[in-house]
Write a protein that binds this DNA or RNA. Structure first.
Lengths: 95, 95
DNA sequence: TAGACAATTAGCTAGTTATCGAATTGTCGT
DNA sequence: ACGACAATTCGATAACTAGCTAATTGTCTA
């Protein structure tokens, strides 16, 4: 849980996830356009991977990154739920 | 937005927010029971304050902390919404 | 105003994070 | 097996974070 929020705390990493929403992409495509080096992007990918937010699959020379929506959902909505946010079934409020 | 997720990335700070859900509390009450020093807790409070997640109000000798749910909601549900999570009105999906 | 109490700020250390260029690993085509 | 390409790992540095004790600020009460 901490790992997910830590991953989301960086704007570059959030943008990567948003890009991935449109579909799987290679590390190269994913890194393209960001104003930092490839190794730096690779480090960001590693953070996302360790948080479980993305998975990888090799395809020839490329590594394809996939978004793992369920981890994102569990963290965001799970925590929001503790505060009665975002759901019709509040957890903590009796009646 | 980054500030909110950065604040949420620490388990102590998440617990503080959860405690605050039950109602406003003084810094002392809030710090009570955590296995770290008061100054350390004070630093955590500052992070939460700067993220806009809590507000303070002086009451005599005590500083009373209030949870600001709307900031939490905007960050969690706002970002979740980008991925079509947690709402019946998905933003990015045509049809 | 002096003492007591609540909380923060100051100053420090240890560990982590973001960033880079250079070197390495893995895979494909020839 | 070799050269080219995709991506990561290595090694270094600068900036940040969490934690502590000690000192300071602000407020109340006697």
């Amino acid at each position: 849980m901490s790992d997910v929020f830590k991953a989301l705390a960086d704007p570059t990493r959030r943008q990567v996830l948003e890009r991935l929403k449109a579909g799987p992409k290679s590390a190269g495509e994913l890194a393209d356009g960001f104003p930092v080096s490839k190794p730096t992007m690779s480090a960001h990918f590693a953070v996302l991977r360790e948080a479980g937010l993305v998975t990888t699959e090799r395809q020839g020379k490329s590594l394809i990154y996939h978004l793992n929506v369920s981890v994102l959902e569990e963290a965001l909505l799970g925590f929001a739920g503790l505060f009665g946010l975002g759901s019709d079934t509040p957890k903590g409020d009796p009646q």
